[in-house]
Design a protein around this nucleic acid. Sequence first.
RNA 1: ACGGAUGUGGCGGAAUUGGUAGACGCGCUAGACUUAGGAUCUAGUACCGUAAGGUGUGGGGGUUCGAGUCCCUUCAUCCGUACCA
Length: 932
Amino acid sequence: MQLDMQSYIFTAIEQKWQNRWKAQKSIIDRNLLTAKNIPKYYMLNMFPYPSGSGLHVGHYVGYIASDIVCRYYKHIGYHVMNPMGFDAFGLPAEQHAIQTGQHPSITTQKNIAKYITQLDQIGLDFDWDQSVNTSEPAYYKWTQWIFLQMFNSWYHTATQKASPIKTLIDEFACHGNTKVEAACDDHTPIFSAQEWNTFSETEKQAKLLHYRLAYLRDSIVNWCEGLGTVLANEEVKDGFSERGGYPVTRKKMKQWSLRMTAYAQRLLTDLEPLDWPLSTKEMQRNWIGKSQGAEISFRVQGERGKTITVFTTRPETIFGACFIVLAPEHPWASFMAQQRSDVELISYIETAKNRSERNRLAETTFLSGVFLGACVIHPFTGAPLPIWVADYVLPGYGTGAIMGVPAHDKRDYTFAQSFDLLTLPVIESTILIEDGPYELTEGTMINSDFLNGLSVAEAAEKVMEKLTQKRIGKYKVNYRLQDPTFSRQRYWGEPFPIYYKEDGLPYALSPNQLPLLLPAVSSYKPNQSGVPPLGNASNWSTPEGYPLDLHTMPGWAGSSWYFLRYMDPHNQETFLSREKEAYWKGVDCYIGGAEHATGHLLYARFWTKVLDDLGYIHISEPFPKLLHQGLIQQVTAIAYRLKDKNIFVSAGLIAEHDVVPMYIPIAFVEKGVVDIKALKTWHPDFADARFLLEEGKYICGGKMEKMSKSKYNVVEPEQIIAQYGADALRLYLMFLGPLEQSKPWDLSGIEGVSRFLNKVWRFVHHAKNAYAATALPPNEAMIKIMHKTIKKVTESIKKCSFNTAISSLMICLNNLSSLETVPLSIVEDFILLLDPFAPHMAAELWESIGKTSNLAEVPFPVWNEAYLEEKSFEYAIAVNGKVRTKMVFDHDASPMAIEKAALANQVIQKWLAGKSTKNVVVVPKKMVNIVV
RNA sequence: ACGGAUGUGGCGGAAUUGGUAGACGCGCUAGACUUAGGAUCUAGUACCGUAAGGUGUGGGGGUUCGAGUCCCUUCAUCCGUACCA
């Protein structure tokens, strides 16, 4: 028996099948499959950014999960599409270009090649013929094209749809903009049809820009003079750039923006029916942040005609308003500061502006602020309310000004406490003012003139009536969601298909000029005066000589619509043909990380709606079903550098120093001790660093965090595959725990799945040899084991509960291997069940038992419920909820009979001795509980 | 700070819908086979206790005949917070 049992040499087997699959793939005729009337399944994976360090084990989790599901769907007869592509524009390749001069496209190509190898080596059955690369002109041509659609559209609030800009021009020609219901900039000037028709082309364009879905506006950005560029919040640490340590200021810059707020309500409403994790829906809901309230205008004392408009969600508390607070960015704040040359105020505004929003919001005990030196008049009482400038009010939300109601708002309360301001309660409550604010929206109004005695809800209604009547307030729905800034001062992104005429206004290139190729540049850095890298291109202008836009699009541009392109990736006429869309009908299942909950997933929904409105596609939601894969976590290593010095302090000594934590590669750490030599050669920053040691060692700090290149804690898969094989790694990553949960990386568990695979191998070969000549029918016990497993595995795959699917395969194998002999039909079923999880081994075993059919297309086993029925059930018999014994009863035993038998049981008798039975609960097929 | 999630043996985790907590795997202990074992097989393994028994799902409280599961409260950890992808 031992003689012909080959051993399981996974390297050879995996290579063999990967090659064979590739050959099979190339002869698949998709058009034929499409034409046949078989059901389709479009699986979508969040595509990766191809970074230089390659894939890490965390990336595989979602891909393996989708591969399992897809292999299953193929087994049950679906035409499956599971494409993979690359979100290839991004900062790392650009940084690399700045450092080495190598063009980012070369770096990107190299990285992509590595990624493809890494994806192939684990047996992922991707449809590479459908792949996309967002940085290729053939792809970004359409990203630019979609941008032009946004530029050439406006949002009609009456129909709740985007519409071509031409319809707006027609409207202006007939009625001016007095009647039009449109999403537009604040303070858009009013004009009549007559005026419109006399406007110059320049004036018309300027007016239209207030309405376009893609428009220019002043955005506040993190400007770093030293690097000549804008930085992400994460690149800014305590007001200094992470790279180089240059000061960073917040500065207004003209930027492209997308009018996403116009879609806020639809993004909110349409979220409801989506089959998404509830937590993700909740996060998007909170991100959109709809709040209903009022805008109320306050007259400024002694300033004729000047008013300050605040947004409040609690207009009924207006009599409790004790002060007005402006964001430091509020135009009136700096105006007043300048006018009065108020040094304190000017400097406060400056510093406050440069604090990060998170910092500003994180303050809990003391809120900073400065009195503006003016007051507004309370519209009902006529009392003067002081105007303050404070950074706990943010410019981007509401009107950038609030009325402070300290008695009923936590932040306002803290602010009032910080400056000893008056606090006036207007809702009756048992909470004393000294104990904090009363924030509930229930109770009876007090100290509120005409609102006294009303409930909060009644008061809200009444006060709105009054405010509207007096024309000082109106209902207002406000969203936390902002129009996202869409331009970047970068090189490696999509250029804007926009040029500027002498009038300084943006004009669109015509679609036939697309793609607008990224130009060659002499340097990838922004130039000294802060002109973006595209400024370094020669002849960056239209054929007529008009200068082209110097910005590029952000990383999320290409990823906002790639799921559409997958359906028709090679079409040069359109980004997605009507026929292909009609066949695939969009994504069936999307698997990706929860960390994109409010970014990518929201942007993609927004773009989809725009394209749907304009009639280019016919789906309103891109991802009807969404699953998250959890992060793989791994220990990070943290070194502590003295502020402003290139000296690193060992972890035990940091209490005595002012240090900045920095990630270092976990690879250089052994039991908390850092290999300083390795560190010094790793990065120039460390080359001549000094180290303050403890007991001769440099000890680093550490945390469990998500595996990520930027934290230098990734585990690369090659070595694991070489040691255990791709099937083992697949199985292990799925066996680790529930798909959606974060899991710490720990290699020791892989031994278990590796043993399992070896056991499967021996089992099949043993069965094969024992039964080569005969074909005995399986007995009842085997059938029961098998059908139980088929059911469990099938249901688990459908629930994406792969860890339990694998464990039931293990249980099944343990049961089967304890049997003397097992017929081949049982072995066949087992191989089929294993196939989605460990496809290389399954294919090899399939062949080894003499099968010539393509395993991937063999129908999945189906269980028969009749085989699973049990005749009896083992009841747990509990006394007062504690299980004391177990008894077996037939399914048709009556509750009365069970109760009687249970009470008569010897063990139970012992527990009942001397007590009276109060109650007996018999739950059929569950348990018995006797209460004494 | 805000929003979201997670917390069960030494470890990863399992547990239909409120009904026998700890499936499956790692690790560990003992044994078998073996020249050998980082192979394989067998048995055991939540904790305390010699036992009878008791205690156990981050902590505290509640609902219930019965709670890992439902409610309240609290703590810890992780993810996101708009130019990282």
